[in-house]
Write a protein that binds this DNA or RNA. Structure first.
Lengths: 161, 161
DNA sequence: ATAACTAAGTCAATATGGCTGACCTAAATA
DNA sequence: TATTTAGGTCAGCCATATTGACTTAGTTAT
C-alpha cells in the first residue's frame, strides 16, 4: 500500500512536499514581520500596534467594530493598544453618523509611521516580484488566498473591493 | 510623474497589489495556524509547544542548540516549554555523542500528538493543492521561499536536504 | 414611549510566550 | 591548564492575548 501510494500520489501531494510548505509558512511569515518588528521596538510599540495602524490606514474612518472583526481579538485587547495610539497622536477618534460608533483616522504622524512600516514590507515584496514571472506571482497569491478560512475570505474581499 | 509611473510600473508592482499580499500573509498565516491552536488549547499547550514538537519530529535526535537556532528564541523560553513536554512524556532527552549535548526524540505519545497537529495542516494544504495546477504550486513555494531571510534559507535547506 | 439591542469603554484577574541578566556545571578543545 | 561550548536555572519583566462582569449612550422595534 505504501508503494501503491508512491505510484499514485502526484509529487506535489507527497507528505514530504507538504511538510515543506508548513515550514515555508513558518519561516516566511516570521521573516516577513521581522522588519517592522524591529522598527516598532524602537518606539516601544509591538506588532499589535502595527496591525491597528495598518488597517486604519487601509480603511479611513473604520469603526471599532469593523477593526475587531478584522483583527479577531477582544475589545479589551484592542483597547490597550488603541488607547496608546490615540494618546500618542497616531490616530484620532471621531463620532460617526450612528453616534454610538467611532471612526478611526490616522493623523499625519500616524500616516508617517504607517508608511515607514509598510515601506519595509513593500520593498521586500517588490524585490521578490521583480525577479518572478507573472505565473508564479499569480500562483502565490491564489494559494495564499485559499489558505484563508471562507468566512475570512469575505473580509479580505471587502477590504479589496 | 505619477502618470508616468502608472504607465511604466507593471500591474503586479502596483502598491495596491503589494498591499494585497501583505494582507494575504496576515490572513493566511492566522487561519493556517488556527486549527492546531484549537487542538492545543484542549491539552493546555500553546503554539510554542507545537513548534517544538514539529521540529523534534522533523529531525530525530535534534539538539537543543539546533532547535534554538531554528526557533530563534532564547534558551529560557525554550526551557519552559520543553520541560513541560518532557515532564508529560511527549519528548525524551538522551545524552549525545558529544556528552555536553542532548538529543531530543519524540515518544509514541509525542508522535501521536505531532501527527494529530500536522494532519490538520496537511489536510488543509492537500485540499488546496488538489485544486491547483503545478505552476501555481511552484510559484507559491518559490515566492514563500524568497520571503525567508538569506541566513534562514540555509536553515530551511538543511531541514530539507 | 418604552423595551431591547448595539457600540463602545472599563475594571480585574489570568495565561502564554517572549525577553534580559546573572550564574552554574560539565565536557570539549586550543 | 585555560578557554570555549552546551545546557540548565533563578528571578523578574513585558506584550499580547483571554474571560467575565458591568456601565453608558444611542438606535431600533414593539
Amino acid at each position: 500500500m505504501a508503494d501503491l501510494n508512491k505510484l499514485l500520489t502526484p509529487l506535489f501531494l507527497n507528505e514530504k512536499e507538504i511538510r515543506k510548505i508548513i515550514e515555508l509558512m513558518f519561516f516566511a511569515y516570521r521573516d516577513f514581520t521581522s522588519g517592522p518588528d524591529a522598527l516598532l521596538e524602537k518606539i516601544d510599540f509591538g506588532r499589535a500596534h502595527h496591525r491597528v495602524i495598518y488597517f486604519v490606514g487601509k480603511k479611513e474612518k473604520i469603526t471599532i467594530k469593523e477593526l475587531l472583526s478584522i483583527l479577531q481579538i477582544t475589545k479589551q485587547s484592542l483597547s490597550r493598544v488603541l488607547n496608546q495610539l490615540v494618546k500618542e497622536k497616531y490616530i484620532i477618534l471621531s463620532i460617526g453618523e450612528d453616534k454610538r460608533t467611532k471612526n478611526l483616522t490616522l493623523t499625519k504622524k500616524g500616516h508617517e509611521l504607517e508608511n515607514e512600516l509598510s515601506t519595509i514590507q513593500i520593498e521586500k515584496i517588490k524585490k521578490i516580484l521583480k525577479d518572478s514571472d507573472e505565473d508564479n506571482i499569480s500562483g502565490f497569491k491564489t494559494l495564499l488566498y485559499e489558505m484563508i478560512d471562507d468566512k475570512n475570505k469575505i473580509k479580505f474581499d471587502k477590504l479589496n473591493y
